[in-house]
């Protein structure tokens, strides 16, 4: 019972306890796996290990983490948002189109893109709540429209360039290593943390995601909260799209469409469940790192796109088997 009693067996017990805690924390597992895969990548291709490699790893991780923030919130609230990739692409196109190689337009771009993201998010949320169809179907339909709209507006060709100062604010390397996108992250990450962990709204999102009926009967305005998660998700995806335009300098249609998939997997790997009510943004950041490292490894291995597609599918099935089996009919 007391410290004295257990003192004798402490070292063994402690290790066991630590191991249990480690396996219970998806974020810790994700970080450990990242380190492992990272080491593997370097062993396979030691020449590739340089400042630029590290820098782009950080940059891509931060970009993926920012683009996964919305998905994290929506999933915790019990939903699913497949429009992230399309919204990101649309925001990127809008950014490069509006800036058109000129500086000083960041604020306009920011306001317009966030508004666009909010509108798309509202449509998502409104349809999910009002139609009562699975979120996946609804958000895919909305996402398709956002993609089609990009084609209509750009006629399928790349549009403009982001402003040089803005590009620099994203990809500049401090000490030749750390990309300047971390400055955006320094503002963005705390906001998400506050929203999810330290605001009443965040608590409501968790309650709704864990048990919608109970939240409703406890007096939470469930529909309002669900719509809000989608609106916030749309805005965050749009923000990620702006930064994405800075990273890629120019944008074409559906440039970030694969982020719909990558961000979803990053969120799940980070410990947020499909069934809702569980998860943290910290876990998502870990998941984003793992996905980025994995992608680097696959590139280093020279795996063809077909194999990568099949692998992606199998990863989802694997994640579903680990986290999301429903109960058997018979007890």
């Amino acid at each position: 019972m007391t410290l004295k009693d257990t003192a004798g067996k402490l070292p063994r017990m402690d290790f066991k306890l630590l191991w249990m805690r480690f396996t219970k924390s998806p974020a810790a597992v994700a970080y450990a796996l990242s380190a492992l895969l990272f080491a593997l990548t370097i062993i396979i291709n030691p020449k590739g290990f340089n400042n630029n490699f590290i820098g782009s790893l950080i940059l891509l991780t931060v970009l993926l983490a920012i683009s996964s923030a919305g998905q994290t919130i929506v999933l915790i609230g019990g939903g699913l948002d497949f429009s992230g990739g399309a919204v990101m692409s649309a925001a990127a196109i809008f950014t490069s189109f509006t800036m058109d190689s000129k500086d000083g337009l960041f604020l306009q771009v920011l306001v317009m893109c966030l508004a666009m993201g909010a509108v798309v998010g509202f449509l998502n949320g409104f349809f999910v709540v009002k139609i009562g169809l699975p979120a996946m179907i609804v958000t895919m339909a909305v996402s398709n429209i956002v993609s089609r709209l990009q084609y209509v507006l750009t006629a399928g060709s790349p549009a403009g360039w982001a402003g040089p100062a803005f590009i620099n604010s994203v990809i500049h390397r401090f000490f030749d290593v750390i990309p300047s996108i971390v400055l955006y992250a320094a503002v963005f990450f705390p906001i998400v943390f506050w929203l999810l962990q330290r605001s009443r709204f965040g608590k409501q999102v968790y309650l709704v995601g864990n048990n919608k009926q109970a939240a409703y009967l406890t007096g939470v305005k469930v529909n309002w909260v669900i719509i809000a998660t989608y609106v916030i998700s749309g805005m965050m995806s749009a923000f990620a799209g702006i930064l994405g335009a800075g990273y890629k300098a120019t944008a074409r249609v559906d440039i970030f469409s694969e982020y719909a998939f990558t961000s979803l997997v990053a969120v799940i790997v980070g410990g947020t469940t499909f069934s809702g009510g569980v998860g943290t943004y910290g876990g998502t950041i870990a998941g984003a790192l793992l996905m980025t490292v994995l992608s680097n490894l696959l590139t280093t291995l020279g795996l063809p796109q077909t194999m990568r597609d099949i692998l992606n599918g199998l990863i989802i099935i694997l994640l579903l088997m680990m986290y999301n089996r429903s109960k058997a009919v018979r007890q």
Partner: peptide
């Protein structure tokens, strides 16, 4: 209809206030 089984005891008690 009442429990938030995956959330902490503290959050469950605070749920009425959360709403």
């Amino acid at each position: 209809e009442a429990m938030f089984a995956d959330r902490t005891i503290a959050e469950n008690i605070f749920a009425g206030n959360t709403a």
